[in-house]
Amino acid sequence: MDHQDKADTENPAGFASSMRAVGRRLSDRFRSNVVANRSLLKRRQSFIKRSFRVRGWRYLFLTVMVVILVAVVLDNPVGAYRHQWPADILRWAFRLTDIGKSGWILVPTGILVLAGFLIDWSGFKARTRLVMAKWVAASAYIFLSVGISGLIVAVLKRVIGRARPVHYEELGAFYFQPFSNASFASFPSGHSTTSGAFFAAVAIFFPSLRFPALVLAVWLGFTRVLVGAHYPSDVIAGVAFGAWYAYFTALFFAGYGILFKVHENGMPVRRPGYQLQKFLLRG
Rank of each mutant, 00 (worst) to 15 (best):
H3G: 00
A13V: 14
A13N: 10
A21S: 14
L26N: 06
L26M: 11
D28P: 03
F30S: 04
R38S: 12
S39E: 12
L41F: 14
R44K: 15
Q45S: 14
F47V: 08
K49G: 11
S51C: 09
R53T: 14
V54C: 09
Y59T: 14
L60P: 00
L60K: 07
L62A: 13
V67N: 09
D75I: 10
D75M: 05
N76D: 14
G79F: 02
H83P: 00
H83E: 15
D98M: 03
I99E: 09
I111N: 06
D120R: 11
R127T: 04
R129V: 01
R129T: 00
V131F: 13
A133M: 15
A133L: 02
K134E: 15
A138Q: 12
F143R: 04
L144R: 02
V146E: 06
I148M: 12
V159A: 11
V166M: 12
V166Q: 12
G172Y: 07
F174N: 15
Q177S: 13
P178I: 09
F179L: 15
A182L: 11
A185E: 15
A185P: 09
F187A: 09
G196V: 04
F198P: 01
F198S: 04
P212Y: 06
V215E: 01
V218E: 03
V218G: 01
V227D: 11
G228R: 03
G228H: 05
S233C: 01
S233W: 00
V239W: 03
Y245H: 13
Y245R: 02
A246S: 10
F248R: 09
F253E: 08
G255R: 01
F260R: 05
H263Y: 04
M267Y: 03
P272A: 12
Y274M: 15
Q277H: 04
